[in-house]
């Protein structure tokens, strides 16, 4: 039963994930924390943070949500449901895409969707901020976010992984 819900929720998220993982974060939070009540706000933030500690596609956090809900089978179901539908659509589209080469509508779709994707990514950022920059130490959290933002946005050659790991260590020292 829970497995079926996981399948439904993550397959839906997979198909809606236009603009990538960040763009679908608000909907993922609203479904997993709100509608289904699988997680609390703090758990959602923790699981998102766990996802940031691993390399590769940045939405592998769905594995942890699945595991939290229904154990090992839940982890596998969430992973497959979140990634495979989008992959199938990508393969199918890639095979026919060249037929639309030069179509003015292809350009219109790209042009029109670009700002929506940015809006969704900002919404995703805000969804994480609302779980991560809270509590009595929220000002320290805000400082963490500001330092990382400045370092990544203005200092082009910094590896984000180093900053993320440093933030984990700094969190142990400052956020307990």
């Amino acid at each position: 039963m829970k497995e079926l819900h996981l399948l439904g929720v993550f397959a839906l998220l997979s198909i809606l994930a236009i603009g990538g993982g960040t763009a679908v974060l608000p909907e993922m939070k609203s479904l997993t924390v709100g509608t289904e009540q699988w997680l609390t706000d703090a758990q959602f933030r923790d699981i998102y943070a766990i996802g940031q500690l691993a390399p590769g596609p940045n939405m592998l956090m769905v594995i942890v949500i699945g595991y939290h809900v229904a154990g090992l089978s839940g982890a596998l179901i969430a992973f497959a449901a979140f990634f495979l539908p989008a992959c199938a659509i990508a393969i199918a589209t890639s095979r026919v895409w060249d037929h639309f080469e030069g179509s003015p509508w292809r350009l219109a779709i790209q042009r029109g969707m670009a700002p929506i994707v940015i809006g969704l990514m900002l919404a995703g950022t805000l969804a994480i901020a609302r779980t991560a920059i809270v509590g009595e130490k929220s000002q320290i959290c805000l400082a963490f976010a500001a330092v990382v933002f400045i370092a990544i946005y203005f200092g082009k050659k910094i590896n984000p992984a180093i900053l993320i790991l440093a933030a984990g260590v700094a969190g142990c020292l400052l956020l307990q």
Partner: peptide, 13 residues
């Protein structure tokens, strides 16, 4: 994890 979560807000933005 709180530290990592806060840092990822900056990264995402």
């Amino acid at each position: 994890l709180k530290g990592v979560g806060a840092a990822s807000v900056g990264l995402l933005l």
